[in-house]
Structure formats: C-alpha cells, structure tokens
Amino acid sequence: MSLNKNMRSTIFKNISAALDAQGSKAAREQHASARINARVRGPIPNRGQKTGAALVDEFISEVIRVNGEIINLKSVAEIPAAVMTAAGQNAPHIRIAPHPILNAANWPAGPAEINSGPADPDDDVGVSIAEMGVGETGTLVLLSGPGSPVTINFLPDVHIVVLFSEDIVPTYEDAWDRIRKDNSGVSVMPRTVNWITGPSRTADIEQSILLGAHGPRRLVILLIDGKKTHTPD
C-alpha cells in the first residue's frame, strides 16, 4: 500500500529530524543492537530473589493474597480427582488442554463431560498446564501452543492450572531467560505469553473491587511437588 509507505517515511523523517542533531543513525543502530543483545536486567526487588522452599512459600502466599486458590498434589496421578473436587457439582462441561500430561491422565467417565481442545462457550471449567510460576508476585506464565490453547485461560468460569513446584522461578526475568533457552537462545516468542495473577476482577463501578469480570471467576492452582515430566502418549 503506497499510502502506508508515504506515511511511514513522513513519520521517520520527523523522527530523524529530531534525533540526527544528537548523532548519526549508524551510531543509533549500533547502540540499539548492543542494548538489545545485552538484555540488561533492571533492579530486581528483594522479594523477587528467593530460592528453594522460601520461593515456593512466597509464590503460594502471593497467589492467596490475590484471591487465587492452591491445592497441593504429590503426583500427576492425583490431577483428575483434584479437578473434579475443585470443579464441584455444577460443572457439567470440563475442557482440558490437549497436553501430553492431561491426555495421559485417567479421567473419570462421568458425570461431567470432558473434552480436549480449545475452549467453547459452554465450558464451565478449563484445565491447562503452566510453563512456569513467578514467586515475586504469584504469577503463572502460560505459553500458547498446540498443547495450550489460549481460550482455555479466559472463557470458562473456573480456570484450573497445573504447576510443578520446580517450575517456580524467582522473577519475571528468569522466566524470559527460560523462554529464550527453550527456543535455542533466539528470542522467538509463541503467539501469546500470558501472565496470570489471580482470578479476573474489576473496580469500574464506584471503585469497589469485584472478582469474576469477563475472565474466570476462580483460579485454582494444582501445585505438584517436583519436576514436570512428559508422559509418553
């Protein structure tokens, strides 16, 4: 679209006019490349620097502070029963992410209908697997992909998320490092990286805080002791 090209060049001409007085564009390019490659961290608050058991404790207390729920599990075998308990009696439609761990789980035959795939509007409960948790603020990190459809995180009334304790990292920057490493050092992002901190809320009416706006009314974390293991299909 030539219109787009013209506007682009007008905008960039104005920007150069402002910046060229301070130095050349080549110098700016060099600076920008160096800065992006260095990926220097800003100041990390002390609460984002915990390790070991203190890190897991911090994650749990931060989740509870923002009205999330935590259920501790010993192994993946306990997932189906915990999901059924958390979902309660009034959840006829349960949606699970097509992730190897959930696919391999031993789901009960009823009474709830359990489907795998992206969410649809009838789903009462969605179950997904978190890539990581961040201790600093009790934040879950979910990456979209074939095993993690993003609609499950937002459409159902109740969102149940499986998280392994060894996937809890101290701070956001640690999460970025791991996402980059999983992509062989190159910053290739999935379509979405979702940070989720508690159930949805709003304060748009008279500044009073209400839980359960358009997203899930409840966020339940199934915290499994140990390391994420991919059960073979």
Binding site: E136, M189, W195
Partner: peptide
C-alpha cells in the same frame, strides 16, 4: 495506577496464531 503489584492479566502477543495453534 491501581496499586496492584501486577495486573491480573499481562499478555504479550507476537504475530497471528502459529500453524499448529488450535485457536487465536
């Protein structure tokens, strides 16, 4: 802004759905 440590949802999005994605 709201006095939260972080908002409930912070969503980083890059491009359209990938070929293998089931939604988006």
């Amino acid at each position: 802004a709201t006095g939260q440590d972080v908002t409930v949802y912070t969503t980083f999005f890059t491009g359209p759905a990938r070929p293998a994605d089931l939604d988006g």
